[in-house]
Amino acid sequence: MGLFGGAAPRPESAERYVEAALPRLMGAALSLTGNRHDAEDLVQDTLAKVLLHWRRVEQADSVDAYVRKVMVNTFVSGKRRRSSREVVSHDLVTSDGAGAVASPAGATEDRDQMWQLLATLSPRQRAVLVLRYYDDLPDAAIAEVLGCSPVSVRVTAHKGMARLRERLPALGESDACPAPTDVAATTSR
């Protein structure tokens, strides 16, 4: 059975949208969840909800904005808090060809640390940072996505940044440190 009943084909506009939006959605989902498995799950959940109401969704002023809202609220709703406790690495997030980019020495380690620290943030804090630094949205637009006030966005961002700032070792020095796993394996207890 097709999505839109009987043997009816999927709306071309929906197929075009999915094809075009998928890379951006996957990147946003990776940034939110921190791991590929949950990111794919989040993308699937988001698109399933959107496609279910496509006829209505495509009438929206901005389909992208609507889809972003669905994704962020699906993430923040608490359904995926399990993921927020997973510690991930840059290699994992970008494995399977998902955006592995050439990095200067130390950059990958810095990202690894950042992924681990992001995992310690609340889903809401993480969502605010992703909307700010992945989607480059202003606070007013972030407030619209999250259904809260811009002040609340700023407070949430401030708390998230403070947590990252206090736990992030001096940037650029991480290439001098061995990987945590190696250290854990060799440190005398």
Binding site: P23, S31, V93, G97, V101, S103, D110, L168
Partner: peptide, 23 residues
């Protein structure tokens, strides 16, 4: 921190040639 956040999130963005057909 902001710079590292942009860099980290940017690296998560799939490249144009990535196969997302399964997803």
């Amino acid at each position: 921190v902001e710079g590292l956040l942009r860099d980290t999130f940017g690296a998560a963005r799939p490249a144009s040639g990535d196969d997302l057909t399964g997803l």
